[in-house]
């Protein structure tokens, strides 16, 4: 079965997008990313350590020719910084597919929707293909799509919280009204959360902490790979209805007892 995820002008076989943060070392980042079979990986943009130019870099381990590198704007609290960050990322690696996130405060890391919308408008006008992190708000999701974002990425729960999907109904509503891929980004804590997101109809899941903070990162990466596949298949297969009462699985005729 060919089941391709189309994001802007890009196409992917995997519906799992992974982050590259919080790993104990680069080798583990590489091993877990390979185990996940993800094709897209997010990265952050930061100052080079001028005093140690020979120091190893993430991209020594994550080959940009093999993976679609998705620069993010993590740590940006206004539109201006986010736009600056992604313009620099595009110059560094030539990437036009980007993850926009503009945060509201350091405690909740909830999106600042006003600044996110401003940044999205500027970036779309500047030729970027913007995958945008946002609240699980169907109205905002639609606004971001109308601006021209190529994917809308509502949170399941706060970044790094691992609490699963706070509002599965909103994820479904966002998906049912969307014409661009919907990616559940943030909040996924374990495999069942990822499966649930895809079962609900989300087109993909973006997962970082749940893999990077697992005791066995590679094993959890495989778990997420399989969960995303299982959730997607269950979604495509079409689930049975939920019933208030039981419905016998064995025939109720042909009994040979009275």
């Amino acid at each position: 079965m060919t089941d391709v995820l189309k994001v802007g002008t890009y196409e992917f076989k995997s519906r799992l997008i992974v982050g590259s943060g919080k790993y104990k070392d680069f080798q583990t980042t590489k091993d877990a990313t390979e185990a996940s079979e993800a094709e897209m990986i997010t990265v952050a943009v930061r100052r080079v350590n001028i005093t140690d130019p020979g120091k190893e870099n993430l991209l020594d381990y994550i080959d940009p020719k093999k993976y679609t590198v998705l620069p993010n704007t993590a740590g940006c609290f206004n539109a201006e910084d986010a736009v600056r960050t992604l313009r620099l990322a595009r110059e560094a690696g030539g990437w036009d597919l980007v993850k926009l996130e503009v945060l509201g405060d350091t405690e909740t890391l909830y999106p600042n929707v006003v600044e996110t919308i401003k940044a999205a408008e500027t970036l779309v006008a500047d030729g970027f293909q913007v995958m945008v992190y946002t609240n699980d708000d169907p109205i905002v999701a639609r606004t971001l799509e109308e601006i021209g974002c190529v994917a809308v990425m509502p949170l399941g729960n706060p970044i790094g919280s691992g609490r699963g999907l706070a509002n599965p109904f909103n994820i479904r509503v966002i998906k049912e009204r969307a014409n661009v891929p919907i990616v559940v980004d943030a909040g996924i804590g374990t495999a069942s959360d990822a499966a649930k997101a895809l079962e609900l109809g989300a087109d993909a899941a973006l997962i970082n902490t749940a893999i990077a903070e697992a005791k066995d990162e590679c094993m959890m990466a495989r778990a997420m790979r399989d969960a995303v596949r299982a959730g997607r298949l269950a979604h495509l297969a079409g689930r049975m209805p939920k019933r208030a009462f039981a419905s016998a699985s064995s025939p109720t005729d042909g009994y040979f007892w009275d």
Binding site: T42, V43, A44, G93, I159, L206, T209
Partner: peptide
């Protein structure tokens, strides 16, 4: 002048 590169991030 700012000189930036890619590091791990989510």
């Amino acid at each position: 002048i700012e000189v930036v590169h890619m590091i791990g991030g989510g």
